[in-house]
Write a protein that binds this DNA or RNA. Sequence first.
DNA 1: CTGAAAGCGCTTACAG
DNA 2: CTGAAAGCGCTTACAG
Lengths: 345, 345
Amino acid sequence: MTTRRAMPRQADIAREAGVSQATVSVVLSGNRARVRMAETTRLRVLEAAEKLGYVPDPVATRLASSRNHMLGLYTFKTTFPTDVADSYYPILVGVEEEAAALGQDLILFTGRGGADRRDHDAAAIRRTRVADGCLFFGRHVPDEAIGGLLDSGFPLVYIGRRPELDNRIPFVGADYVRASAKVVEQLIHHGHRNIRYLREPDDAPSSTDRERGFRQATAGLPATVHRLDGGIDLDAWRKEGVTAVVVEETDTSTAYTAVTNALEAGNLTCPRDLSLAVLGRPPGQAEHVTGFAVPRREMGRQAVRLLVRLITRELGQDSPAARQLLPCEPVAGTTVGPVNQGSPA
Amino acid sequence: MTTRRAMPRQADIAREAGVSQATVSVVLSGNRARVRMAETTRLRVLEAAEKLGYVPDPVATRLASSRNHMLGLYTFKTTFPTDVADSYYPILVGVEEEAAALGQDLILFTGRGGADRRDHDAAAIRRTRVADGCLFFGRHVPDEAIGGLLDSGFPLVYIGRRPELDNRIPFVGADYVRASAKVVEQLIHHGHRNIRYLREPDDAPSSTDRERGFRQATAGLPATVHRLDGGIDLDAWRKEGVTAVVVEETDTSTAYTAVTNALEAGNLTCPRDLSLAVLGRPPGQAEHVTGFAVPRREMGRQAVRLLVRLITRELGQDSPAARQLLPCEPVAGTTVGPVNQGSPA
DNA sequence: CTGAAAGCGCTTACAG
DNA sequence: CTGAAAGCGCTTACAG
């Protein structure tokens, strides 16, 4: 039960090796300054360090220099969602994998909810500065706090595309535009012309991107976008000539659920009566639904890699390479087929 | 794109308020030393801090004092297991919940595997000292590294009972002895006398505790312990008069799997032909199996609480209260019934 | 009541 | 080639 002073410091090594503390620092940090030094001195220091079981104090290192090989992860909501199936988890797996591979520790910052939420988040966000840099993840961007971090040159990376703050935020997102367009092109390839897109009434980048992809692919076609705001009437749509439905996919799966309910209610089968594609993966085990898979794990990994490159200044905060969109994996599924020639039910 | 120097320091506040930097420190830290000070001065400092958007630098705080309100979590394997159903996850949920509730950030330390694993772990374990204290979780205890931490008075708590190092390690575990005994008592209550215990050939505390509970409950009965080392012959056991089987449950579920396979092969039904209880929860959705649930989430929460009490010195490292065993929740299930009166198949 | 000083354990110019 | 000094942003005795 001695005190914390039990940990050997550089000064102890210096005494042991008969050199100055500064020399110890130079030797132990690999002599990056390329100071010329007698090999014997170097060895003596190394030996003393080994003998005393020296481990650098990460706190002091961080204060004196500017690296401590710690990466922050700030999440705005609980980091470990209770709902394990949450889309969140694979990202964490990727983040941790890559952080470990690059020799970085991870600091989890949790913005606590409650009454003083705003203040609290601001303080917590500022605290991220203990780390060399920080990953952020969440639907909204607290402009002021993040802007402050950006202004001060603190390395940060958002997970998910972030056009906010004049596109000054580095990010690693998924290329929803292209993935969505490809799904819709598949429908067109099957002969569909009148395609309806069902989206949720939210304007997060991931939503608008999907819609853009849909619009790109259907340019010139009678395809229309329907914003969910209640029930949907598939029969009416079919009477209008709609032969395929494309639904947005989000955390809540509201749009997807609405469609499957309507299909069931109308006793409709895909792709016999209607072709169906989802812009993402549906909840549960519905693996037969055509769509695409978001590379969440890879997003986590790449976000870490990008953050480290920002930290080492290998990449500038403003570099185009600091805005990454990863491709999504198409999922063929079985809910898309040729246009049904029969008349609507 | 300014430098990090953009963050205001206490010195900046001091200049703004026309006081010394030390006075700023006193005011901002709530004047715990109860230094007498003009209220107007205090307010002036607070106002200046507010105006400049001051946030204390946690690194400097930690170096100068000894608290930074960060808790470490060291895991020896990947912190986010890819197998989501892993028993690991609920503990993390509990840890994060309670850490957030107590206003503590979390630092994840991951011992990387690989060739230099031992050295690496040792260095990583030492790095935990950036935090005010650290939670540890894993099947083995690296004696030397943990002993060193303990010697230096660094607050740490293991998740899971830890008799190693002469019981010097504070922990929060589950009371497997009592939970196991209760399960077995249930069997005895149903009239079973000749009960067989199937355990895996591993001597972790969680294994030996379960066996102890079994032995306690079956004292004086012909109950015997069988160490798994290949296939098992249920028919032979039944001919010996065994009417109930109790299996250990671990990460791997080896024992449980062996029994269910044997049951299936022998076309046996529980509890008709044999009563079955598992000392924990079986893998998958087998909710009908009698056993008990380990309070993992609560273990996570309590471990955090204990660690904080250690950090604040409210509790000493050697205090008996720093060795906690949480009760497990019994699961009734349907695989235990009265002794089968018919003859063995 | 408030300021000046020392120190936490490092890194990084700068002298010799 | 190596040492002495300053400084990172705080806290904590200690003087006035």
